[in-house]
């Protein structure tokens, strides 16, 4: 696994992202939910909500539970930890977490988890 090259795909400019709101992005055929958090950092998880099967997580409300940054699915309101992908209301369910970074030009790049 260590040998696998990470493929970074540019998706948008950092300034296009609203604080505490998500956008969806198509990366290598995968649907990714990308969030800009209150502290300015970014998080990316699957856009697909595992409970409803619909591609909607990017449209959820961003917030916190304890110290964890979270998004609540807009469909049935389950809350996911944006750093681990684990559903805090049902820890047996998780979404994938994808790598995300900003380059010097202010472009946001996403690498889909393997």
């Amino acid at each position: 696994m260590t040998a696998a090259a990470t493929t970074w795909t540019p998706v948008c400019r950092y300034v296009d992202l609203e604080p505490e709101r998500g956008v969806a992005a198509l990366v290598d055929g995968a649907q990714v939910a990308l969030f800009r958090l209150h502290d300015g950092t970014l998080a990316a998880v699957d856009h697909r909500d595992p409970f409803s099967g619909a591609n909607v997580l990017a449209r959820g409300l961003v917030g916190t539970r304890g110290d964890a940054a979270t998004v609540a699915s807009p469909m049935y309101k389950q809350v996911f930890d944006l750093r681990t992908g684990v559903c805090l209301d049902d820890p047996s369910v998780a979404v994938r977490v994808h790598a995300v970074r900003v380059d010097d030009a202010g472009t946001v790049l996403v690498a889909v988890a393997g």
Partner: peptide, 8 residues
């Protein structure tokens, strides 16, 4: 904190 789907 920074709120949630209830208070926001």
């Amino acid at each position: 904190g920074r709120g949630c789907d209830i208070c926001k």
